[in-house]
Computed example of a mutant assay.
Amino acid sequence: MKHDTDRTLVISLGRNGRVSYPERSWEEIEPVLRRMWEFDGRMCAWHDVRRDVQAAWRASDALASQPAGRRRAFENRAA
């Protein structure tokens, strides 16, 4: 039986993936993130979390493009 997914882990995978590969596209990095996710066989299937990981990836792009003051306000609110 697969365990429920920890939302924080899903978001972290997307955000950290974006930070680790800033010059790469989602299409290039998705297979890497998928292998990382599937390494732990206790997790739910990749297709169940793919959309959320991708959303966190894309949110990191939007956050990086914001002015520094607004970005800090968002980060403080998320913490």
Rank of each mutant, 00 (worst) to 15 (best):
M1D: 08
M1T: 12
M1F: 10
K2P: 15
K2H: 14
K2I: 11
H3F: 05
D4Q: 05
T5F: 01
T5P: 11
D6C: 01
D6E: 01
R7W: 06
R7L: 11
T8E: 05
L9Q: 11
L9A: 10
V10F: 01
S12G: 15
S12M: 09
S12N: 14
L13A: 13
L13H: 11
N16K: 04
N16C: 05
G17E: 00
R18Q: 02
R18V: 08
R18F: 07
V19G: 05
Y21N: 08
Y21H: 15
P22A: 00
E23G: 14
R24M: 08
S25E: 10
S25K: 06
E27L: 08
E27G: 10
E27C: 05
E28D: 10
I29V: 15
E30P: 06
P31M: 03
P31N: 07
V32E: 03
V32R: 01
L33M: 07
L33P: 15
R34G: 11
M36N: 01
W37I: 13
W37G: 09
W37A: 07
W37L: 12
E38L: 10
F39L: 14
D40F: 15
D40M: 13
D40L: 13
G41R: 03
G41L: 02
G41S: 07
R42N: 13
R42A: 13
M43D: 05
M43P: 09
M43T: 12
M43W: 12
C44A: 07
C44W: 01
A45P: 15
W46H: 07
W46F: 13
H47T: 09
H47G: 10
H47A: 12
D48F: 07
D48I: 02
D48T: 09
D48R: 00
V49L: 03
V49D: 03
R50N: 15
R51Q: 14
D52C: 05
Q54S: 03
A56F: 04
A56R: 00
A56D: 02
W57G: 04
A59R: 07
A59S: 13
S60I: 03
D61P: 10
D61R: 01
A62N: 12
L63N: 07
L63K: 04
A64M: 02
A64I: 08
A64D: 14
Q66C: 13
A68T: 05
A68M: 06
A68S: 07
G69N: 09
R70L: 14
R70F: 14
R72N: 11
A73H: 07
E75R: 01
E75D: 10
E75G: 08
N76T: 02
N76S: 04
N76G: 06
R77A: 14
A79W: 06
A79Y: 03
